[in-house]
Write a protein that binds this DNA or RNA. Structure first.
Lengths: 203, 203, 203, 203
DNA sequence: CATGAATGAGCGTTCATTCAT
DNA sequence: GATGAATGAACGCTCATTCAT
C-alpha cells in the first residue's frame, strides 16, 4: 500500500478519530457501554462533546467502529499467523495462540469482547458475537479437515469446535476476572493438550 | 378491623410478584438490564408503575432477587443430583447434566446467566459472576479429588476446571444464539466424552 | 348545650377524628405541611391510609380543620378572658396574656401558627394568616377605644396594633426557635411595659 | 480552538442565570419552595429544564443562592448605611430604615424572607432564619451599647431587640399581605417613635 | 471545522387518592 | 365503616444529540 501524502489537517483528524476510539475502548472495557457518557468520553479524548459527532454519527456507531476494528485486528492476525504453517494442526494451534497472545497483550480488547459484549446495543452485540462465531467457524473448518485427513476420529465438529474455543474462552475470562491463572500465555500449552486429547488426536 | 388478608388476596399478591419477576427475567434475557424501564416492566407485568415498588424496593433489588433465585435454583439442583451418586466421576457428570438440563428447560435463565450477566449493575454482575465461579469451584474440587484418587493424571486443575466448564458454556451459548446444536441435551454425552478425554481419564 | 347521648360507634369515630387531628398537628409542627404523608399520618394516628379519607376529604381539608380548631381555641380563650375585666387596658393585657400562655402551653400550636403557616396550601395559609389578622384587629379596636377615652395619645392605631402584636410575635418566635427567652411567661411583663410605653400610655 | 467564550456569550449566560434567579425568587415569593417545579421554573425563565442544571447544581442550591444573595444584599446595605452615622441611635435608626426601604423596594425579597422562609428545605430555612437572627443580634448590640452609655434604662435587651425588630416585621407583613399601611416608608417614623418610647429613651 | 451551551425526552421514584375486599 | 394494595400523574434529574457561535 502506498501512502498518500495527507496534509496536516487530515493527519490531525485521523489522530482525533483515533483518540476517540482509544477513549471509547478504554471506557467500554472498564465501565461497559451504558456508563459511557459522550461528555466523559470527549473529555477523555481531549475534545469537545460536539466534536464527537463530527467523527461518529452517534454513540452506537462509535461502538460499532470499535467492534469492526477489533474484528479486523483479531482475524487479520490469525490469518497472518496461519499462513506461516503448513499442517492443519499447526494452523489450528497458531489460531488459538494468536488469540491468547492478543488478549494477554490487550486486556482491554479481551474485556470488551469476552465480558462486556452483551448489554450493549443489539447491533453492537451482534458484531461482537460475530467475532466469536467466526472463531468457532474457523476452528470447525480445521477440525473438518483434520477429520477428513483421518487425524482425528469422526465426531460432531460443531460441538468440538465450541468445546475447543470454550476452553480458551473460560480460562481467559477467569484470568480477566480473578487474575488466575496468573500467566495466561503459560497456560496455553496445558490447554492445548487438554483439547487435543479431547479431540482424540491420534499420536 | 374488617379487612382481612385472605388466602385469595395473598395468592393474588404472590401471583403479582411472580409476574413482575417473570417480566423482569424476560426483559433481562432479551434486552439487558439497562434497557429495562420500570414503566415498560410494569406494562409487561400488567401493573401500574407504582405497584412495582410495593413488591421491590427498587430496580436493582428486583434484579438481585432474580439473581438470587437463579443461584439457588442452580446450586440446589446440583446438590440434589450429586447426592444421588457415589463416585466422583458420577457426581461431576451429574453436576453438568443438571446445568445442561436446567438451561435447556429455562432458556431465559441461561440467557441471563451466560449472555447478559455483565453490563448490569456492579452488584448484580457480581452475583451472576459468582454463580459461574461457584460452578468452576465445584468442578475443581471434583478434579482435585479425582487426581488424588489417581483417576486422572496430575494436572493444573484450575485450568482443567475452567476448560471443563468452558466447553459446556460455549456449546450452550451457541445453542442459545444460533440454535445449534439443535438438541442441547443430546450433545451432553459428546461433550462429556470430550472432557473426560481432555482430563486424561484412565480407562 | 345538652349532650346528645352518642352511641359507642359515634364516640369511636370522634376519637378517631381527634387522633387524626392530633397526629396532623404534631407533624405540621415538626415537619411542615409538605413533609406530611398520608401514610405516615395514618400510621401515627393508628389507622389505615384509606380510613383517613373517611374523616377528611383530603390532605388540605385536614389542615384547614386544624386551622379552624386553632382559630377557635385562641379566639375563644381571648373572649373568655377579656370578659373578666372592665377596663380596656386590662382587656388588652388579658388578650395578649392569653396568647402567651396558650403558646407557652401548646408549643405545637405556636409552631404551626407562627413558623409553619406559610409554605402551606394557599387556602390554609389564608386561614392561619386570618388568625393573626384577627388578633391585630382586636388590638386595634382596643387601641381605638383607648384613644377615644384619651388614655393614649392620638396615633395611627393600625401601626400601633401591628407593633404591639409584632413585639409578642417576635419574642415568641425567638423562644420557639432558640429557646430564648427561657421563660416565655416571665417575659410578658417586660414586653407589656415596652408596649405601654410605646403606645404613650398616660400615667 | 475556534469557539471563544465571547463577551456576548458571557453576557447572555449571566442574563440567563439572572432570569433563573428572578423566576426562582418570583415563585418562591408567590408559591413557596415546594410548589416550585423545575419544569415550571424553567418555563418561567424561558429555558429548557435541562438548562437549569447548567446554572445550578439542583433545586436546593438555587434557593440557597437566593438566600445568600438576599443575606448579602441586606447586611451590606445595613453596614454601609450605618457607617454614615456616628451615634448609636442614628446607627440603629439607619439599620431599620435600610430594611424598610429595601423591603419597600423589593417586595419579593420581603415576601420570601418574612413570609415564605419556613416550609423550605431545612438548610434554606436555616439560612433565612439566620438573616432574621442576625438583625436581632445587631439591634441587641446597639441596645447594649445604648444601655451602657446610659441613653436607655437598664432592661433585658434580648427582649427589647426582639420587640424592636418585631414591630417592623409585623408592619411590613401587614403591608405585604393587606397593603396596609399603604405607604410603608411613611410609617417608619411612627414606628421608630413607638420603639424609642418603648425602649425608654431619655429625652 | 471545533466548540460547549442548550435542549427535552426519558429515567427511577414518590405519594395523594381510589376502591375491591 | 375499615382496610391497605393499587394507581398513575408528577417530581427532580440525566444525557445523547443539536446548533449558534
Amino acid at each position: 500500500m502506498v501512502y498518500r501524502k495527507t496534509d496536516k489537517v487530515e493527519a490531525k483528524q485521523q489522530q482525533r478519530k483515533n483518540s476517540i476510539l482509544r477513549a471509547g475502548k478504554e471506557m467500554l472495557a472498564e465501565e461497559g457501554y451504558q456508563k459511557i457518557s459522550i461528555k466523559g468520553l470527549a473529555e477523555k479524548a481531549g475534545i469537545a462533546t460536539g466534536t464527537f459527532y463530527l467523527y461518529f454519527t452517534n454513540k452506537d456507531k462509535l461502538v460499532e467502529s470499535i467492534a469492526d476494528e477489533m474484528y479486523e485486528q483479531l482475524i487479520d492476525e490469525i490469518r497472518l499467523e496461519r499462513s506461516k504453517y503448513a499442517s492443519v494442526f499447526e494452523k489450528l494451534q497458531a489460531s488459538m495462540l494468536v488469540c491468547v497472545n492478543l488478549f494477554a497483550r490487550e486486556k482491554q480488547l479481551a474485556k470488551i469482547l469476552l465480558i462486556q459484549a452483551p448489554g450493549i446495543s443489539k447491533i453492537l452485540n451482534f458484531k461482537l458475537v460475530n467475532i466469536e462465531k467466526e472463531l468457532v467457524r474457523l476452528v470447525k473448518i480445521d477440525l473438518d479437515e483434520l477429520m477428513e485427513q483421518g487425524l482425528i476420529p469422526g465426531q460432531d465438529t460443531l460441538i468440538s469446535a465450541c468445546a475447543f474455543v470454550g476452553t480458551f474462552r473460560q480460562v481467559i475470562i477467569s484470568w480477566l476476572r480473578e487474575g488466575r491463572p496468573q500467566n495466561l500465555e503459560k497456560s496455553f500449552e496445558t490447554l492445548l493438550g487438554y483439547n487435543l486429547r479431547g479431540l482424540g488426536k491420534h499420536d
